[in-house]
């Protein structure tokens, strides 16, 4: 029973030893350059960095982001060029994902669709984060009725599935990329807010925040200087995770037809269009679907990595 505790004691002692070695009589001391705490983390980072699943995931994410901004790097074909003679063709070297009902190259459409899907997802995450940053920090730090109001709001949003919330919002806002991004972003506010509020509750009790209060700082300057930088740690890992989720939600909304309108390509929309030909040309729906799944998984893997190294 005691062994576990002893192990922990070893680690604590080591850390202590490192910092205290620098103390020199007279108080003015030469201090070692690296604090002891940073060391085990660095090696953990190397181990995590070299894992094949992480490398693959990171490459995929980088490729997808590049494709969003520079689609011409990945394909020379025009996603709008129709070729009716060659419609619903099976995957070949020339058309790796086949062609659709108008003979357009499906691969080129996936590549050009990346922009729409990705930008909407990023926008959703940024929106969700900024709204919840304000809500979470105010609720956690100010407490009282602000906390109560924000808390109830979060409870309501958490009780309803996020996609349903997004659907409600998008029906009132109308169709379009920006609108579904807003809808998905607001749908994710609750999760961010809850975590941030908990972190702020922890940080606001720390001695250095009390010290700042005694130093005459007002709450609006304590929050950005002392509280926020120490509260966002867990949020960064969640950010990558939430990005994957947002991507899925954006695709789902597009699949239902709330996003960009044809003939513009978008991942969810491609799956939706391909669905009609599922019996004759299954690759039209399945392959873009696999792309979505892979990117979401990659985002989760990257999130896991961030969680482990921070």
């Amino acid at each position: 029973m005691t062994l576990q505790f002893e192990d922990r004691a070893v680690a604590e002692h080591d850390e202590h030893a490192e910092t205290a070695l620098a103390e020199v009589p007279g108080g003015i001391a030469v201090v070692g350059t690296t604090p002891a705490r940073a060391r085990p983390r660095r090696s953990a980072r190397v181990v995590q960095l070299t894992q094949p699943s992480f490398i693959l995931s990171a490459l995929l994410v980088v490729a997808v982001v590049t494709a969003a901004f520079l689609p011409t790097l990945f394909t020379s074909l025009d996603p709008y060029a129709t070729d009716l003679a060659n419609k619903l063709a099976a995957p070949t070297w020339q058309h790796p994902l086949g062609t659709d009902n108008l003979g357009r190259d499906q691969y080129a459409r996936v590549v050009y669709g990346t922009g729409n899907t990705l930008i909407a997802s990023l926008l959703a995450v940024v929106l969700g984060l900024s709204v919840s940053a304000v809500l979470g920090i105010l609720a956690g730090y100010l407490g009282g009725w602000v906390d109560e109001v924000v808390g109830r709001f979060v409870d309501i949003f958490l009780a309803v599935p996020g996609l349903l919330v997004s659907l409600m919002i998008v029906t009132t806002l109308g169709y379009g990329t920006i609108n579904i991004a807003i809808a998905v972003g607001i749908g994710s506010v609750a999760a961010f807010t809850r975590i941030l509020r908990a972190e702020v509750l922890r940080v606001r009790e720390s001695d250095f925040v009390t010290a700042a209060r005694l130093s005459g700082l007002r709450w609006w300057s304590i929050l950005p200087r002392h509280v926020f930088p120490h509260s966002i740690g867990p949020l960064i890992a969640l950010l990558a995770l939430q990005f994957g989720e947002a991507l899925l939600a954006i695709s789902a909304l597009s699949f239902l037809g709330f996003g960009v309108q044809p003939p513009e390509p978008e991942w969810g929309l491609l799956v939706s269009e391909g669905r009609t030909y599922l019996s004759s040309a299954w690759w039209l729906a399945i392959l873009p679907g696999i792309v979505i799944v892979l990117v979401v998984l990659a985002a989760n893997r990257v999130s896991k990595f961030i969680e482990k190294v921070t």
């Binding site: 001695d207 250095f208 010290a211 700042a212 005694l214 130093s215 005459g216 700082l217 930088p229």
Partner: peptide
């Protein structure tokens, strides 16, 4: 170990009351 903001430079830690009370 907990009363100083680990992200601040020592100068800013000590200067904080002067800035806070202007």
């Amino acid at each position: 170990y907990t009363s100083l903001n680990p992200r601040f430079r020592i100068f800013d830690v000590v200067a904080e009351p002067l800035r806070g009370f202007k």
